[in-house]
C-alpha cells in the first residue's frame, strides 16, 4: 500500500525566542516491509543543524530556532510503501542489543497495578497471552482523547482508568517486560478509514517473541498493525520516540498546532 503523509507541527510563541533547539523524530524507518519512496522536512522559523540515526535506528533531526522568531513550522511529508505482515516486524536489528528492551523506564515501571494486570493473564503461549493482554488493557483504561498527560506512566493511566494510545502502549510494555519479554514503544502514522485529517501521531507497542521476532500490537484499536501503519520511531518508551523534544530560552508561552494527513494513493 502506498501512503502519502503530510505532517505539520506549528508553534506560536507569545514573545520572541532567544534560543531554542528541537529534536525531531518524524522520518519513517526504512525496513524490509516499509520503503521510504520520498521524504522531506521543511522548516520555517528555524534551520536544520544536523541529523543522525540514534541507537534505536530512529532518524533524528536537530533543529535550531531562529533568533527572535515567534513561529516555528516543521513540515514533514513524503510517500511510503508499506506491505502487510500481520504485525510481524521480524528479527532484531542493532545497534541496540535486544536486552536493552527489557529495561524498565520510569514510565514503564511495573508497580502494583501493572503486576496485578499481568497476573490476570491465563497461562498459554506468549503470543496468545499478549493478545489477551491488549483486551485487558482496553477494559482497564478507556480510550479518551485528551484524558491523559504526556508525562503519565503506565501506573498513572491505570489509576485514572482513562488514557490515549500512548498510555495503552506504556501499559503493554510494562506488562510484557514484567513477563520477561523485551518490548518497545512505536510512534508512527496510521491511515484511518473514515478520515484523512488527524491531530496527533499514533502509538503502539511491539514485543519480542522467540522464533518470531518483533511483533506489533495496537492496543487502542485491538488489532495487529497492517499496511496502514507506518513505523516512524521506536524506543524504550515515549521519551525515546516522541516526534519532538525541545528546549528554548525566551518565548514565554507557546501554542502548538498539529496537522496530519494520511492518504492512500
Amino acid at each position: 500500500m502506498r501512503l502519502t503523509i503530510h505532517h505539520v507541527t506549528s508553534y506560536r510563541f507569545a514573545e520572541p525566542v532567544r534560543f531554542g533547539l528541537q529534536q525531531v523524530r518524524k522520518t519513517p524507518k526504512t525496513t524490509p516491509h516499509q520503503t521510504v519512496v520520498s521524504w522531506r522536512t521543511a522548516i520555517t522559523g528555524g534551520k536544520k543543524e544536523l541529523s543522525f540515526e540514534d541507537h534505536h535506528n530512529n532518524t533524528t533531526e536537530l533543529i535550531s530556532l531562529d533568533r527572535d522568531t515567534q513561529i516555528l513550522d516543521v513540515l514533514s511529508e513524503g510517500e511510503i510503501e508499506v506491505s502487510d505482515t500481520h504485525g510481524i516486524v521480524g528479527p532484531h536489528r542493532g545497534p541496540a542489543p535486544l536486552w536493552l528492551y527489557s529495561r524498565a523506564t520510569p514510565r514503564t515501571e511495573a508497580r502494583e497495578q501493572v503486576r496485578a494486570l499481568a497476573r490476570r493473564l491465563a497461562p498459554g503461549n506468549d503470543l496468545d497471552r499478549l493478545h489477551a493482554l491488549c483486551g485487558l488493557i482496553r477494559e482497564a483504561v478507556a480510550y479518551e482523547t485528551g484524558a491523559s498527560e504526556p508525562t503519565w506512566s503506565a501506573e498513572d493511566a491505570l489509576s485514572d482508568g482513562r488514557g490515549v494510545c500512548q498510555d495503552h502502549a506504556h501499559i503493554f510494555i510494562a506488562c510484557a517486560r514484567h513477563l520477561d519479554l523485551p518490548a518497545r514503544y512505536v510512534s508512527g502514522y496510521l491511515m484511518m478509514d473514515d478520515t484523512t485529517d488527524q491531530t496527533a501521531m499514533h502509538a503502539w507497542a511491539e514485543a519480542y517473541l522467540d522464533g518470531i521476532g518483533w511483533v506489533g500490537f495496537d492496543v487502542s484499536n485491538g488489532i495487529s498493525p497492517d499496511a496502514r501503519y507506518v513505523r516512524v520511531a521506536t524506543g524504550l518508551d515515549y521519551s525515546d520516540a516522541s516526534p519532538i523534544t525541545g528546549m528554548r530560552i525566551g518565548g514565554l508561552s507557546e501554542t502548538l498546532g498539529v496537522q496530519i494527513k494520511v492518504v492512500q494513493q
Binding site: L21, E49, F52, L62
Partner: peptide
C-alpha cells in the same frame, strides 16, 4: 546535555550529544 539527559541541568550544552553522534 539537558536535551538528551537531565532536562533540569543548567551546567550542560543542549544538543551536544547530537553533535557528538555526528562526529562534530
Amino acid at each position: 546535555d539537558p536535551l538528551n539527559f537531565n532536562p533540569e541541568s543548567q551546567l550542560g550544552v543542549p544538543g551536544i550529544m547530537d553533535v557528538y553522534r555526528t562526529g562534530g
